[in-house]
Computed example of a mutant assay.
Amino acid sequence: MSTVTVSEFIEAQDVDVWRLLTDLPARAGWLSAVGAVDVLTSGEFGPGTVWCETRVRPDGTAEPEEFVVVEAVAPARLVLSSRGAGVDYRITWTLRTVERRRRGRTEVTVEQEAVPTAAYGRMLALIFGGLAARAVEGALRRDLADLALAAGPRRSAEAA
Rank of each mutant, 00 (worst) to 15 (best):
T49Y: 05
T49W: 04
T49K: 00
V50L: 07
V50W: 01
V50A: 03
V50M: 02
W51A: 00
W51Y: 00
C52F: 02
C52V: 12
C52K: 13
C52Y: 03
T54Q: 01
T54K: 00
R55H: 14
V56T: 13
V56S: 11
V56F: 15
R57P: 10
R57M: 15
P58E: 05
D59Q: 07
D59P: 07
D59N: 14
D59K: 03
D59F: 08
D59L: 05
D59S: 11
G60W: 06
T61A: 05
A62V: 06
A62Y: 02
E63P: 05
E63C: 10
P64W: 03
P64Q: 01
E65W: 06
E65D: 12
E65P: 08
E65A: 13
E65Y: 09
E66Y: 10
E66L: 08
E66P: 04
F67L: 02
F67Q: 03
V68R: 09
V68A: 12
V68E: 14
V69W: 10
V69S: 03
V69I: 04
E71C: 08
E71P: 07
E71T: 13
V73W: 02
V73H: 05
V73T: 10
V73K: 06
A74P: 11
P75M: 05
P75G: 04
P75A: 04
P75I: 01
A76L: 10
A76D: 10
R77P: 11
R77Q: 10
R77W: 05
R77V: 13
L78P: 08
L78W: 00
L78V: 04
V79T: 11
L80E: 01
L80P: 02
S82N: 09
R83A: 14
R83Q: 13
R83V: 11
R83L: 10
G84M: 12
G84N: 10
G84C: 10
A85G: 03
A85F: 15
A85Y: 15
G86M: 03
G86K: 02
D88C: 04
D88L: 08
D88V: 09
Y89S: 10
Y89D: 07
R90Q: 15
R90I: 13
I91T: 07
I91Q: 02
I91H: 02
T92M: 08
W93Y: 10
W93A: 02
T94S: 05
T94N: 03
L95Y: 06
L95S: 04
L95I: 06
L95T: 06
R96G: 12
T97C: 04
T97I: 00
T97L: 01
V98Q: 09
E99F: 15
E99D: 15
